[in-house]
Design a protein around this nucleic acid. Structure first.
Lengths: 210, 210
DNA sequence: CGATATCTATACCAACGAGTAAAGACTATG
DNA sequence: CATAGTCTTTACTCGTTGGTATAGATATCG
């Protein structure tokens, strides 16, 4: 693969290198899978096709990931962990609750335009096996709680107005989830710009105030 | 079924009554199908199950609707036509653009909490056959255009602030689509209240203004 | 009554795709 | 070198399900 002139490519790998390669291959499977899931939908994507897109065969996928359900679950887990990190980062910031919320929301929106984030949104709970579904819901619930927390902090410090925190969180999340459906990575829209603009719309509202 | 004492139930139906019954049965199939699609997902729902839930067998469905794709397409078509009606009704109203928009959005949200509206949102384009998909997209495009039109009118008459109409429409639609995923018809939330509250959040924004 | 159209069920087919068994190639290690 | 472990392929099973052929039932109409 790589033609790095620094390191002469020895055919003998250390066990560390082997371990690394294993993880890399696993990731490659997930990447290929998530792309196809997002494009064609989970059920319309066969593992044969995923494997073929990597130039390998189906049992390879079963070697690195247990079954189709796990492939999907790993994809959404990756997406959700990105969002979780965003929440943690935002909450660690200085400033008003409103500012922390805006930072979180911008990142949240950006992730939802990326492969794994899109997969999180496009995956309905029904799609996963009962066990994965429970885990999936739990993880999403954490994100939701995190978002409500930030909102509540903003209400507490007077920087934002939200009589119904739960409904506010749903509204914001919905608006920023939707790009997972319409955003076209090949188009000319820039993720960051779109994210920032949407957050601005949500924070400022529609009503004109002159 | 009905024990209406006014009309003695004659076993002989006129051709009009037969026609009516046919339409009723067709609708019943769609109703049963949309419920299951929303609950389990399209691919996880077999037509055998849909038929069984009505106490009939699969060929009945094929008698009233051509194939599975058409069953789904009719469901989303029904949902989209409701939204279209809402748009027409809202645009016919008096008042500022903001007011017309709010009326439209409230109804839009309500429909998205009902069976067929939910189906529209939960159905990804990939799910439909190529022809149905094109039609589906065209219909959604019309709704989108309608929404942008109302927004533009509000901007024109100065009742609302929306520098980027397209992005504003996406943001609003996304927020109000999301209940199709989380709203529980069996819960204690009231459709109308939820819809009105969400629209209020969107119009007023989050930032506190004292 | 006989012919025709509508409606529904039984029984079936074909395709597709998830998952597996088995075996071969290659690597590491005692 | 031999043995064990890892990685990958070929070739298969098997359940599910969309869709259909056929035939029987019922009703309509000439």
């Amino acid at each position: 693969m790589s033609l790095d002139p620094e390191i002469p490519p020895s055919p003998f790998r250390s066990s560390q290198e082997r371990q690394k390669e294993r993880i890399l291959k696993r990731q490659a499977v997930l990447q290929a899978a998530v792309r196809m899931f997002n494009e064609r939908g989970f059920h319309a994507t066969s593992l044969d096709e995923v494997a073929a897109s990597l130039g390998v065969t189906k049992p390879v996928i079963y070697h690195y990931l247990g079954n189709k359900d796990q492939v999907l679950f790993e994809c959404v887990r990756l997406g959700l962990s990105q969002i979780r990190e965003a929440a943690v980062a935002a909450r660690a910031q200085e400033g008003t609750g409103l500012n922390r919320l805006k930072a979180f929301l911008r990142r949240y929106a950006e992730i939802n335009m990326d492969d794994f984030g899109r997969c999180v949104i496009r995956t309905g709970d029904e799609t996963l096996s009962p066990e994965s579904r429970r885990e999936f819901r739990a993880l999403k619930g954490e994100i939701d709680r995190e978002m409500r927390e930030v909102i509540a902090e903003g209400v507490a410090d007077g920087s934002l107005h939200a009589p119904d925190v739960r409904l506010t969180a749903f509204t914001l999340a919905g608006a920023l989830n939707w790009p997972a459906r319409w955003f076209n990575p090949e188009g000319r829209d820039d993720r960051r710009e779109v994210a920032a603009a949407m957050v601005e719309i949500l924070c400022e509202g529609l009503r004109c105030r002159v």
